[in-house]
């Protein structure tokens, strides 16, 4: 017991360090899934699910009125006869998450600038969990190709001081490049 008492302080310290590492390891990120690509009237439409995870620091920044503007990039490429990827379609859109202090609500603007208001941030994030039929542009109906989707927090719209904050991880909210192989679409 004496020994335990002696090392208790050290154990607490180790526990704190491990907890901090664990806490830090919970990354804020965007996960894209369930991608669906529709071809209709000469246009491609993308639908997908996304799960946005924000750390408390980001949530606090949001609650202070700092707008979060997310950039979604969609690229359709196809291998040419030389085996190289040629870009067929490229489209971006922004959606925004912002706390309106006057209204005391979180405002979500979608790709069509349709605004929705939510009392809490989770509901607001939930609103962005499914993007439906995003027109990414006109094209031929491709027999094969690859759709690449990537969503990220566009830091250039953050206040300058936060943009150049040296704790870079705090504002690195982004997804992996998620690929979707295009087969024959009907």
């Amino acid at each position: 017991m004496r020994y335990l008492k002696k090392i208790s302080n050290k154990l607490v310290l180790i526990w704190m360090i491990l907890f901090s590492i664990h806490a830090y390891s919970i990354e804020q990120k965007i996960e894209i899934s369930d991608i669906k690509l529709d071809f209709k009237e000469g246009h491609y439409f993308v639908s997908y699910s996304q799960s946005i995870t924000l750390l408390s620091e980001a949530k606090e920044a949001l609650s202070k009125g700092i707008p979060f503007k997310f950039l979604v990039t969609a690229k359709i490429s196809q291998k040419n006869k030389y085996g190289l990827n040629s870009l067929i379609l490229y489209k971006i859109f922004y959606f925004q998450l912002k706390y309106k202090s006057l209204l005391q609500k979180y405002m979500v603007s979608d790709m069509n600038d349709q605004k929705s208001y939510f009392s809490n941030i989770d509901d607001a994030i939930m609103r962005l969990s499914y993007i439906e039929k995003w027109d990414i542009g006109p094209s031929n109906n491709l027999k094969e190709g690859t759709l690449e989707l990537k969503a990220k927090l566009d830091k250039k719209y953050l206040p300058k001081a936060l943009q150049i904050n040296f704790n870079k991880k705090s504002w690195d909210v982004e997804s992996e490049i998620t690929k979707y192989e295009i087969g024959k679409l009907n």
Partner: peptide
């Protein structure tokens, strides 16, 4: 007026939030 107050308040909060970063920079 309300929107103006909101805008100023948000700016203030933003600045307040990033004050330590500002100092460092």
């Amino acid at each position: 007026i309300a929107l103006s107050v909101e805008s100023v308040y948000e700016d203030y909060q933003t600045l307040a939030y990033s004050r330590s970063s500002l100092k460092i920079i």
